[in-house]
Each structure stands twice: as structure tokens, then as C-alpha cells.
């Protein structure tokens, strides 16, 4: 009775990948282990291979993409977020500079715009705090150009642009392309979009 209960416990607790009748050699090790547990294998060999390839490819994309777009420095951002210490000394009212760097790494336009990247005036304040001494102004400048190009191509969702405009996340240097794009859309969809006063 007690033995049965004990066996039940064991089965419930341990992973059963061993022949239970065999004596124990070391804590948890039995003298004979089953050759191959077919049910453990499933049909997963190729899935595992594909997953590993996916992992490696994702890494490759994360490194090669910034290289291709002329921002190789972003690959060695520590993401230690030391740049957050810029605080209210940032004239663009950006609070999370590290997010901008990471967004630049993979050309994540949504994150870059909504974290206030288009407000950056490239003053270099955050650079003084960077632990890896990245040339943040250069990175942000390159990214801003790419964002403008993407907006003109219509790659950036209008929802993002509308939100950014409403929150004042588009710097005055970049208002024109954004507004132009929105006006073009307005002609198409007849949605009322406020026309901001420039200068």
C-alpha cells in the first residue's frame, strides 16, 4: 500500500524518462535508462532546426539592418538606459533616448516617432551620458531622414502620424512632410485634419 503510494508520488513528481524497476546509482540516476523515449521526440527535429535558423536569422537581421542603413553604431548600444539621465536637459522633451536608438537599429518607425524622435534637435546632450559613447545625434539624424522618406512613401501608418501630431511629437523641421502627406490623404479620404500654422 505504502509502496504503491510512493510509486504514484514518484510518477507524479519526476519526469519519467527512465525504467523505474532499475536500482538507483546516484541521486536520481538509475542504472539503466530507456533507449529513446519516442513520445519525447515527437516529430520535432525539423521544427527545432527551423526554430534555430529563425533565431540566427533574427540576430542577423538585427545586425545587418542598421549596417545597411548606415547606423552601425546602434549594434553596440548596451541598452543600459544611462541616457535617461538627460531628463529635462533634453530640448526635445525626449525621455527615453535608448528606445530611439533601438528603434533606429531595426527601423521601427512607430517607436521612433511616438517616443519623440522627430523632436530631436541633435544637441548632443544625451551623448554625454552614454556609457558606450555612441554618436547619438548622428544616429537620430540619420533615422529622422529615413523616417521622412518613409512618410513620403506612405510606409508609416496614418494612425501613428495623427497620434504624434496630436501629442506634439513631430518637430517643426519635419512638420511639412508630415502635413503634406496628411493633406494628400485628406484629399483622398475627406477626413478633417487640422492645418498647423508654421513659422
Amino acid at each position: 500500500m505504502a509502496d504503491e503510494k510512493q510509486k504514484k508520488d514518484e510518477q507524479k513528481i519526476g519526469r519519467t524518462r527512465q525504467v523505474e524497476d532499475q536500482p538507483v546509482a546516484l541521486p536520481g540516476i538509475r542504472r539503466f535508462q530507456s533507449f529513446t523515449n519516442v513520445e519525447d521526440r515527437m516529430l520535432t527535429k525539423n521544427i527545432n532546426r527551423a526554430a534555430m535558423f529563425g533565431v540566427a536569422a533574427a540576430m542577423g537581421v538585427a545586425v545587418l539592418k542598421p549596417l545597411f542603413h548606415g547606423m552601425p553604431q546602434t549594434t553596440y548600444c548596451y541598452e543600459c538606459r544611462a541616457c535617461y539621465a538627460t531628463q529635462d536637459k533634453c530640448p526635445g522633451r525626449i525621455t527615453e533616448q535608448a528606445e530611439l536608438t533601438v528603434a533606429s537599429r531595426v527601423l521601427d518607425y512607430r517607436r521612433f516617432i511616438l517616443k519623440g524622435g522627430m523632436n530631436c534637435i541633435r544637441c548632443g546632450n544625451c551623448q554625454t551620458f552614454c556609457a558606450a559613447h555612441l554618436d547619438l545625434p548622428k544616429i537620430f539624424g540619420t533615422m529622422q531622414k529615413l523616417v521622412v522618406a518613409a512618410i513620403e512613401e506612405g510606409y508609416v501608418p496614418t494612425g501613428v502620424l495623427a497620434q504624434a501630431l496630436a501629442e506634439g511629437k513631430i518637430g517643426r523641421d519635419y512638420l511639412l512632410p508630415v502635413v503634406k502627406y496628411m493633406q494628400k490623404l485628406k484629399k483622398e479620404t475627406e477626413k478633417p485634419i487640422p492645418e498647423p500654422e508654421l513659422m
Binding site: 539621465a85 536637459k89 530640448p91 544637441c123 548632443g124 546632450n125 554625454t128 551620458f129
Partner: peptide, 14 residues
Amino acid sequence: SHRLAPTKEIWQTK
């Protein structure tokens, strides 16, 4: 002190 310095001076120390 470098970190607490005003913006303008950080720019100049380049």
C-alpha cells in the same frame, strides 16, 4: 560635475 554642467558647456567641451 561634467554631468551637472549646463548644456552649452557640454557642447563646448567637444
